[in-house]
């Protein structure tokens, strides 16, 4: 039985990232779903970048952006005394960017399907835009949110390259599941590697199975 600290750490990282992205992703997805702005494709392309960029590119830039020589990193050092790199908070920030499209795209699709009409109907009933958002748009998009949250969570669990570059492999702080598996394999500790890998495989499969089953139900429901 291997040390399970990396597992709890990965779950905490994925959970924190999903929560942050629910808050950060919603206004972006909302804006993207409703806007007719010319820069919409630019923002869409930008938020989809983590899908196509290799983790080494993101990891390299995070190493520089989160480092104490850059404004964000320097600010963090001035308030906490420690660098953002090699810290759990730093990993959350990196994961938020890394998993951004997995949150934005399903939620944006859900908002787009709801359409403007139901919101206009709410407006004719004198609902404020904020009220209409919370009592009409948000409930209608709940399935999109479930899919987005599951995908974001699972994708963050699978994060490896960025953590390898900015994490520092610190037990209990930045040694997440994927890094622990990597180290087990490289030190020929195959038993522990199998244990953790099989667990992640099974979890990931059920996360995706849930997502696809759920989405199928959704489309049937929608049509």
């Amino acid at each position: 039985m291997p040390d399970l600290t990396p597992l709890w750490l990965s779950l905490a990282l994925a959970g924190s990232t999903t929560l942050v992205l629910l808050l950060v992703g919603t206004p972006i997805a909302w804006w993207l779903a409703g806007t007719k702005s010319k820069i919409k494709p630019v923002i869409e392309a930008f938020t989809a970048l983590p899908l196509v960029l290799p983790p080494t590119v993101l990891g390299f830039y995070f190493l520089i952006l989160l480092g104490p020589a850059a404004p964000i990193g320097a600010f963090w050092v001035s308030i906490t005394g420690n660098t953002l790199t090699f810290s759990f908070v730093g990993l959350v920030m990196a994961s938020v960017i890394y998993s951004l499209p997995f949150m934005i795209q399903p939620v944006q699709n859900a908002f787009e399907r709801t359409g403007r009409k139901s919101l206009e109907a709410a407006a004719t009933l004198h609902a404020s835009p904020l009220d209409a958002f919370f009592s009409v748009a948000l409930p209608a998009a709940r399935r999109g949110y479930v899919v987005a949250a599951v995908l974001t969570f699972a994708h963050t669990l699978g994060e490896f390259g960025i953590v390898l570059m900015v994490g520092g492999n610190i037990p209990g702080k930045t040694r997440v599941l994927s890094i622990a598996i990597y180290e087990h394999v490289e030190t020929l500790n195959y038993g522990d590697a199998h244990f953790l890998s099989a667990g992640l495989l099974v979890f990931s499969f059920f996360a995706l199975l849930f997502t696809y089953t759920f989405m199928r139900g959704h489309y049937r429901h929608a049509s």
Binding site: L63, I64, L66, G67, A69, F86, V166, G168, N169
Partner: peptide, 20 residues
């Protein structure tokens, strides 16, 4: 205080970028 890099090349990079 130890942060662990994958190899000395990465250890060098962590110092060069002032992260360590």
């Amino acid at each position: 205080q130890i942060v662990t890099a994958e190899n000395v090349g990465q250890a060098y990079a962590l110092v060069a970028t002032k992260n360590a």
